[in-house]
Design a protein around this nucleic acid. Structure first.
Lengths: 338, 338
DNA sequence: CAACGCGATGTTAACGTTAACAAGCTGCCC
DNA sequence: GGGCAGCTTGTTAACGTTAACATCGCGTTG
């Protein structure tokens, strides 16, 4: 015998029919304990393993959840993925991966989703950083439950959304600076084609407006390089330096810190800096970075949990996970209250 | 009709038999062009998509490659994964994910591999940072081609290995310091249970020995925190500070930089620091970090390419990808040549 | 002109599982 | 003691595809 044993082989070994083997494996109640034991012994002896492909074909249940990754600005992808994978495994599902890098057109995305449904995935989690991708999703009848991770605000009754509340995070950061006494808080934005960057801008604006404070907006792209460049611009400008800078993410904060160090601008004495993400090592920048922490593993886990509920017939859900402010040493009261 | 159309439906529409449809889809040569066109029209009209589960069942080819992730110290996982996914897609394969976090026993690993083969994956890539995992692999007859990513040095004729040459990377880093005139080069190691950390220690030792130089070894765990702590120890020690520090990775270098800044030790004037990885933003630390760059996407891509060749009947291969030194501003000649 | 070869198409039978239905056995109650 | 319920087991038929073999028609060649 050159191929792995099937149910028939186990059945022959145990002296029963293959369907009894099926029942034992699926935990069907009406099997005599004695028979069950015999079948289990045969399974053990032959080293039988259920062929999940055949099972998927017949039962139309592949026990697989597809994950689509759109965009590659996602620094924290591994943590999300680990959350996804862990939760999926716990729920008895496989994770099948499909990514779309670079400029993904709507057609590309459709094709990726198609490939995934061809594979008979039961549900799909889309980890997307761009509104474009999500807008495309809303126009698609995919036929399986879909959860969108990390980006929301698009009205769509059939899609679930799981995201960290970016606007709240931004507000937390800005409020912290306001509380310290800052009234001129610049924002170095992330890539504005992404949801996250936009939501952070909104949070920053809203909080600033509520406090009657102000600040310049400089557009970056989430890279440390852009943070560096924008901070340099800030220094070079004729106007006085703002007393605080809210960076689009920790990478940009890092760049800004480098630029300030180069110009001899002291942080936090001359200018306060807040980041976003709480990336690995953020506490060991100089100075240790005050930032907004996102729980990415939680995000991934929630996505799967939502999908599992949807597979159970529940309607689509929307979850906003609250981020938390982590205060370290890159923020302080402004030197001179104007 | 409530379920998606199958080949029979297409066949009926086109007025042929389902097997002709199969031939058209698989690009079989002996189909009359006129028939082909008719079938293609029917496919288009019905929106037919091949059921890859049924195909996998019959042909025993799932077109899926399994990826097992062992350990979670892998900061650069997403880049590897993206390389894997891209290369797999190009080669016509799916990627199915399975991770093992935390303390993975051999039994755990076996079970994970089993689950993957149950799914009929055609090949498996194991991204592992620990020797334990790899040793377990060598004792297993898995039945499909296996490539191990990121860790080598274990003799095993059936396993392919794809890794960045860690020892070479360490040598590059240390040689750079030696060339600058350093003779006392401490090494803050990564977690010694991992291959990478060990290989870097070996490279450091070998290069030091070859040059007749010396230096202390302090054991860390790849975290910025450990880099910080060990650098503090270095400062606190009665003996003089080494003139250079080779950190186990960029995170640890970051921690060390923070510790030195706190103590008023200037980098690179008082002490030079070299990292490993070239993590995102390494060029925007203060000072910009000299480090060793690993091409992770290449790593992932190579793994898939090797597996595809193995699926084509080729024997196992071993690849060492050469890392490159990136010189920035955290290294300089020692202040006083002794 | 018949036989052969070959390209194009069709028929049948798997792949290994689960669903639906059928049937045997036991024990219980009237 | 017969019939019926209920538990256990078996028979048969799919799921949608591909492999192997069969068939048909036509052009070519001895």
């Amino acid at each position: 015998m050159d191929r792995p044993p099937g149910m028939v082989d186990v059945a022959r070994e145990a002296g029963v029919s293959h369907i009894t083997v099926s029942r034992v494996i699926n935990g069907h109640p009406s099997v005599r304990p004695e028979t069950r034991t015999r079948v289990e012994a045969a399974i053990e002896k032959l080293g039988y393993r259920r062929n999940s492909v055949a099972r998927a074909l017949k039962s139309r249940r592949s026990s697989t959840i597809g994950v689509v990754i759109v965009g590659s600005d996602l620094f924290e992808l591994p943590r999300i993925l680990l959350g996804v994978e862990t939760a999926a495994k716990e729920a008895g599902y496989w994770v099948s991966l499909a990514s779309r890098q670079g400029e993904s057109t709507t057609g590309d995305l459709v094709e990726t989703l198609r490939r995934l449904t061809d594979q008979s995935v039961e549900a799909i989690a889309v980890v997307a950083d761009r509104p474009v991708a999500v807008e495309a999703l809303t126009r698609l009848a995919i036929g399986v439950p879909v959860a969108v991770v990390m980006s929301g605000n698009v009205p769509s009754p059939d899609l679930s959304f799981v995201e960290v509340d970016q606007e709240l995070g931004a507000r937390l950061a800005v409020r912290h600076l306001l509380d310290l006494g800052h009234r001129d808080i610049a924002h170095l934005t992330g890539a504005l084609r992404t949801f996250d960057a936009r939501a952070r801008v909104e949070g920053w604006q809203a909080e600033l407006a509520a406090a009657g404070a102000e600040g310049a907006l400089l557009e970056g792209d989430f890279s440390a390089e852009s943070g560096f460049r924008l901070a340099q611009e800030l220094c070079a400008a004729d106007a006085a330096l703002p007393t605080a800078v809210f960076a689009g993410n920790d990478q940009m904060a890092m760049g800004a810190l480098a630029a300030f160090a180069e110009r001899g601008v002291r942080v936090p004495q001359d200018v306060s800096v807040v980041g976003f993400d709480d990336m690995k090592g953020a506490g060991y920048l100089v100075p240790a970075l005050t930032t907004v922490r996102q729980d990415f593993a939680h995000l991934g886990r929630s996505a799967i949990e939502v999908l599992v509920r949807m597979l159970g017939g529940e309607p689509a859900e929307r979850h906003k996970i609250a981020p938390g402010l982590v205060v370290r040493h890159s923020t302080a009261a402004p030197r001179t209250a104007s």
